[in-house]
Design a protein around this nucleic acid. Sequence first.
RNA 1: GCCGAGGUAGCUCAGCUGGCAAGAGCAGCCGUCUUGUAAACGGCAGGUCACGGGUUCGAGUCCCGUCCUCGGCUCCA
Length: 667
Amino acid sequence: MSQTITVQHGDARAQLEEGATAIQALKALEAVRGQIVAARVTTPDGASLQWDLDREVPDGAQVAPIPADSEEGRAILRHSVAHVMAQAVTDLFPGAKWAIGPPVEDGFYYDFDVERPFTASDLERIEARMKELLKEKQSFVREEVTREQALEEFADQPYKREIIELVDEGTIVSNVDAGPGEGEAGDGPPTFTVYRNVRPDGSVAWSDLCRGPHVPGTDRVPAFTLLRSAGAYWRGREDQPMLQRIYGTAWESRKALKQHLTMLEEAKKRDHRKLGRELELVHFPEELGPGLSLFLPHGALVRKQMEDWIRDETLRRGYQPVYTPHVAKEDLWQLSGHLENYAELMFPGMEVEGAAYRLKPMNCPFHIMAFTSRTRSYRELPIRISELGTVYRYERSGVVNGMLRARGFTQDDSHIFCRQDQVVDEVAGCVEFARDLYRAFGLGEPSRVAISTRPEKSIAGHDDKWKAAEQALIDAVAKTGLAYEIDEGEGAFYGPKIDIHARDAIGREWQLTTVQVDFNLPERFDISYVGEDGAKHRPFMVHRALFGSIERFFAVMLESFNGAFPTWLAPVQAVVVPVAPDFDGYATEVADRLREVGARVEVDVADETLGNKIRRAQTSKVPYALVVGGDEAEAGTVAVRPYQGSQRKDVAVGEFSKELAAEIATR
RNA sequence: GCCGAGGUAGCUCAGCUGGCAAGAGCAGCCGUCUUGUAAACGGCAGGUCACGGGUUCGAGUCCCGUCCUCGGCUCCA
């Protein structure tokens, strides 16, 4: 006799024969809308799991669809495509060993151990082979196996065997490339799942150790493309073999794929190194060395606006500016512990009059020196020392990237010395400050706030001290009302931290602000303040950089605005364009009048056609081109041609100057 | 640092499998033209083909090394 089971979706219920699959349940529950790739099943005991559509659902389960166009759905789709790619590589490169192939943001990758690195034409061949495999309409079939069966099946796949062993020893509890799915790690010996790609005729084309779930079949892959290949260390560790990684992306529709590829193109066009050169903002002469850049006059004007903003705001918020040197004796770095913990990121020393000196990789020790310049009273706290401090870090040659990852950069750095009972308010103040900064620079609200806890390699401080500091950070963020997530073990070696991210105009996320508690340095420098009780107490030290790095933030602004800075930030806010040399005089007059209200204005007096000058104004992305000729000179007006939007003729100079001044004041 | 791809004028690029003279457009400079909303016309100048070795009758082109750039790994502001 056949048993029946009950499934639910929200308030909907359905009775099904025992053995019914997730897709049958969803259909019975009338929960299928659009393309779905898998299901989410909540079992009666409360476990919520991703579930293959063709997998049997348990009695009493809540079943929900995972749509193809959700982030969760895309990840499943992408991971499925990664399997197809691995199958294609196995076909084309006999003997290839495959490692892991997880979905990542906007795509997927799979790592292979092959005889030689992949070439561009290999990628084309692999992609072509993948398209053939998709046409074969293979099904993804889930199978549970024991540890022994898994080890036997993947006997010639050393990386898979290693994953199985890692699961055994608990190093990996659940991994997309290993055994039981999320929440399935129950009692008893670990079980593993294998996904087989089965052809319509029932033959097995390829199998992989995998947690799943997957789309039901290869015909359910609407759009994908391979992007690039690169070397990657197995398990991300330098002491491990280097594998060959192929990156690709897959989407729920051709349209979505195309949009994503367009976004990548757009990002490439906006590259700050490209725009920085074209707009003559920054320069990376090879003569300086890798990771070192300089601001050209126009870039410097943008930077000055950023610096003015942060200087004004720090003053307004009770920070005390200081200036400190770029080098200091090695003894200082010995005392601070940098030579012990940070030496590999410091430039080598230099010797002067028998003493060893080092370029500073951080500003903290100097700010501590500012604090300890005299005895401090509890009445003074919090003391907020701030500086635009340029630091130098010996980044490894393969990692430098324009202004985003440099060897010399300037932090809007502050160290706040306070009592324990002030930490939460001070940290919350930093987070609010960052929020105001993002708003002012057009980035909107933070996209992500991550609190990082104690890492394995950490120093100083007892566990309870770390815990207290971590809690203080959590309380501080909670106070601001922002959502946050916890990154376990991602803190700095000297204390827990908050990283704040923002999204730019084309949706990319950037890590900008960092707020960190440091209880290493106060100990090492043995700093103290005199309390109400007349005794010495150790202050808390909060380190924070809101821009993060001025150079990096500048690059983010440049890319986000695509070089068309808002008027208050723009290096040149208006360019006056005379229609003919006869009107150069009037143009200069107009420029002078605008400069009187503080605007940055240039006059294009070149002996060129008007069309050419307009073009130059447009390509240089100046917010306003002001065209002047006979009519304007006579009437005391300008023809306003904004970078974006339509032109307005016969605007009185006085009127425009008021408008411009008002716009500049919106910073 | 590791894996891969590259480095030809200030910029963007062409120079095929080594062969009679290293090119174009833009930018620059000099002229001509005197201009109403995204490129007027002509001319000139500009390169030890990243650098150093090697193979060859002959190297921008092939080989080796170094430096630098790019995409990743690792890391990170």
